Lab assay of single mutants.
Amino acid sequence: MAAGGDHGSPDSYRSPLASRYASPEMCFVFSDRYKFRTWRQLWLWLAEAEQTLGLPITDEQIQEMKSNLENIDFKMAAEEEKRLRHDVMAHVHTFGHCCPKAAGIIHLGATSCYVGDNTDLIILRNALDLLLPKLARVISRLADFAKERASLPTLGFTHFQPAQLTTVGKRCCLWIQDLCMDLQNLKRVRDDLRFRGVKGTTGTQASFLQLFEGDDHKVEQLDKMVTEKAGFKRAFIITGQTYTRKVDIEVLSVLASLGASVHKICTDIRLLANLKEMEEPFEKQQIGSSAMPYKRNPMRSERCCSLARHLMTLVMDPLQTASVQWFERTLDDSANRRICLAEAFLTADTILNTLQNISEGLVVYPKVIERRIRQELPFMATENIIMAMVKAGGSRQDCHEKIRVLSQQAASVVKQEGGDNDLIERIQVDAYFSPIHSQLDHLLDPSSFTGRASQQVQRFLEEEVYPLLKPYESVMKVKAELCL
């Protein structure tokens, strides 16, 4: 049975990233139509530049190519590739079939990587351009969430054990800070992308030097003109047959890092959902379990974690691919890159769409948070109580021993009897502590235990987050809708 299948058929496997999760716009960027249309555009740009620099290419040939950029006979191309065992030459023939007058000058002087690699770089750039505003929107939604809850005390956790208090907004800023680093890295790697350009079979530009009869300047002009037509500021000066596969490492490393950030955020949300302090959106008709109707599973956060793990592992592909590119190139890269580049971007696209949807509907339960604080705060307040007693004339050592005994009794009630923490009640009825009984409410005010959390939130948002989001103001209103 021949390899390949009808990918629109229910009898043929289709990647869930495309069929179930990723956005239509990201799927289109990695589609065959987008790819092969870009090949034709690159052939047109090459012909236009070659004509401008004096090669015998007519206006009629150029116009014929322009008129057929979208006229792609995919069936013919597939048949040609089956016959020739070469995808680029299959599309040269297919393009030439609908451009008979231009057929002889299509791909003039070029090698397969002229269309293959340059198209990949265009796709990487455009895919990054799709991700950047999506990530900015996630940051914006979380920034709104953090600002609104900047002063809401909550129990902090280290080692997932109760620690000092923080605020809900401050905790959210930990998430935002990681995503801001990801946004900066995505922008950097996007701006650092260079075009492969017009380089020939081993990167020496020998074929173009021959076409222009040894004119170095025209060869350099050709490279520059096509690079500018493709919208790049610069091209690699040095290439082998391909652009260095280190570029793929750079791009997928940034995406993998984004995956790590999203995994951490969504894990926190899942843990908070278990504590009943916070939940992701839950639709009115949504079913959490087929057997347990009360369940409210954090399905979206779980999906993000599941896909983020996949995204983090994909960076190993370009690392290994770059390491086995012998001399000017081997074909070890080809099949692998067809999979890992598309999957990385479709996965990143999915987790950003999902995280935006989550961040637009996060639900906080202040009463649950308050109750958990009441359970733990008495123990945390013991040092403040000791200091207040010393100020009232008591002995630190005597007070410490009193607190120690009462704390152990209260802990026994919590752990052995399943009761509430009654340390404060014990202190309130103990005559030894009568000098500070009137101060206990103040000493137990949760806001006095959150330090500068709310001020940190305000400063972080104003100095770091809002300036970073400013270039994306025009796209901030787009909502994230999930079908599944």
Rank of each mutant, 00 (worst) to 15 (best):
A22Q: 08
Q63A: 09
M299H: 14
E25V: 10
G451Q: 03
H107E: 00
A3Q: 15
G197N: 03
L108K: 01
M76T: 10
G419L: 10
E473K: 14
P467W: 15
I57G: 01
S407A: 09
C399W: 05
E279V: 01
E481A: 15
L484M: 15
K402T: 10
L193P: 01
K75D: 13
I358R: 05
T201F: 00
A344L: 05
A322Y: 11
Q408T: 12
I287R: 00
F327S: 07
I237W: 08
E302R: 06
E64S: 13
S112I: 04
H217P: 12
G418Q: 05
A381I: 08
K35M: 13
F379W: 07
V254T: 12
I424G: 12
I358V: 09
W326D: 02
I436Q: 06
M380L: 08
S290C: 02
L272G: 08
H263C: 13
L275G: 04
N384G: 06
A22F: 08
I176T: 08
D420L: 02
L186M: 13
V465S: 03
K479R: 14
D223R: 02
R459V: 11
C180K: 06
L155S: 01
D268M: 05
K264F: 08
D223T: 03
C304G: 13
S438V: 11
A49K: 03
Y34R: 06
K295E: 03
F212A: 06
Q408L: 08
D332V: 02
R190W: 08
G394C: 13
S454Q: 13
A136T: 15
K295D: 05
D422P: 10
A235K: 09
G231F: 04
R33C: 14
L69P: 04
A49Q: 00
D420V: 08
R270I: 02
G8W: 15
L186A: 10
R245S: 03
T244V: 00
K233T: 11
P467F: 06
G8Q: 14
S359P: 12
F28R: 07
I385Q: 06
A77M: 15
I72A: 07
R171M: 04
V254W: 09
T204P: 04
L341N: 12
Q397G: 08
L440R: 01
N353Q: 12
M89Y: 07
D191M: 10
E464G: 05
Q285G: 13
R137L: 15
L255K: 03
L444Y: 05
A230W: 01
V413M: 12
A256Y: 02
D349F: 03
H86C: 03
P366R: 08
E463G: 11
R270F: 01
M65C: 08
L406Y: 11
P318H: 03
W39H: 08
S12K: 13
T354Q: 12
I106T: 07
